[in-house]
């Protein structure tokens, strides 16, 4: 009997970039399905637009940089960016929104910095922020969840209708469909208290369930990814706990002017951000302690921007601001190697 002698490690894991990205794509499926169910075929069309344009721009950038196209397209990172942007933009946004977004995400936010692994900011969020600043009208036209739109039962409009909305882009049709999102309603209350809004506003009464279900879908996908050890629990838990804690204090002090913690976590993009956006391994903090600080920053910023800011949801700006702070967080949360003294931090540190 002959044994092959090899040095350790003998057990390897298949945690390659492409494997991780494939798991993330898999975990996004419940969320995308929920979006389609509640907001119509638009989401799937946006996914198709973002995927096609994103992969095309990625291939173009790789060709310009003289890198092997098939190898880098095979890491699925552009695919994940495209999916994240597609679920962030309104389902009925015109065709060019997705294309402009992917152009910025792939060429400016990712490839200019050196491609996969080198981007200081989350590419999808850079694109989202740019689109939101540039085209506020198109980017805030979310259609109402279709649970609302018919007493005769729950039906989403035909796919042809969504197609004409996106490709022909008639703004009248858009107005008929769209309305303020729950977070917007709760912020711009015209002098009413939040309880009064919950009692009187149709979107909140009937539509909140759709948003809760959507958050549950993202949550499920996120738990699956933690179970598969794609990322650790630190970032998502610290975001959710911080946001819940801060909003609970505010709600406890003044319940008529602040949104309650449960709805802070479930009415907007909090779950998507906590599990799919803030956990981007490249642009977030690297140590576990650092991830907790990173998540606390995001949770706090989400609360601040949602409560006193001007934009519909705060996720993109919070994540980008904390991306900016990630290198500093890394500097101050460097883990100690076993047997060594605690590192000296600050300007005197080495």
């Amino acid at each position: 009997m002959s044994l092959i002698r090899m040095s350790s490690p003998h057990v390897t894991r298949s945690n390659t970039s492409s494997g991780v990205m494939q798991l993330v794509i898999l975990a996004m499926i419940p969320g995308i399905l929920a979006l389609t169910l509640f907001f119509g075929w638009g989401t799937l069309i946006q996914v198709a637009i973002c995927l096609a344009s994103g992969l095309a721009f990625e291939a173009l950038a790789l060709k310009m940089r003289g890198l092997p196209i098939s190898r880098y397209l095979g890491d699925y990172s552009a695919t994940v960016t495209a999916l994240l942007l597609a679920v962030s933009i309104p389902p009925s946004a015109p065709l060019w929104i997705g294309i402009v977004g992917m152009f910025v995400a792939i060429l400016f936010a990712k490839q200019v910095y050196g491609g996969i692994g080198n981007n200081p900011f989350n590419p999808a969020m850079v694109a989202y922020a740019l689109l939101l600043v540039s085209f506020p009208v198109q980017m805030t036209s979310w259609n109402l969840p279709y649970v609302l739109s018919g007493s005769e039962g729950w039906s989403i409009p035909a796919i042809s209708e969504s197609l004409s909305l996106i490709f022909a882009g008639s703004s009248q049709m858009m107005d008929a469909y769209t309305g303020a999102t729950p977070l917007d309603i709760l912020r711009n209350r015209d002098g009413f208290t939040t309880e009064e809004m919950w009692r009187s506003n149709q979107t909140l009464i009937e539509g909140a369930a759709a948003y809760h279900a959507l958050s549950a879908a993202w949550f499920m996908g996120g738990i699956y990814l933690i179970y598969k050890k794609v990322f650790t629990w630190h970032t998502p838990v610290s975001i959710l706990v911080t946001l819940g804690f801060v909003s609970a204090i505010a709600y406890g002090v003044d319940p008529s002017n602040f949104v309650d913690p449960f709805n802070h976590l479930t009415l907007g993009a909090t779950m998507l951000a906590a599990f799919f956006i803030a956990t981007d391994p490249v642009s977030s903090a690297t140590s576990n302690r650092g991830r907790i600080v990173f998540g606390m920053g995001i949770g706090l910023l989400i609360f601040i921007i949602r409560t006193w800011g001007n934009y519909p949801d705060a996720v993109a700006f919070s994540v980008l601001l904390m991306n900016l702070a990630a290198p500093m967080i890394d500097h101050y949360t460097q883990p100690r190697s076993y047997g060594h003294k605690r590192a000296r931090l600050g300007p005197k540190g080495e």
Binding site: W96, F108, L130, V133, S134, F135, P136, Q138
Partner: peptide
């Protein structure tokens, strides 16, 4: 043409 505000705003100048 939908006005591309980003280009007019200061970040567009940097880019």
């Amino acid at each position: 043409y939908p006005n591309f505000l980003f280009a007019i705003l200061p970040p567009g100048a940097f880019l």
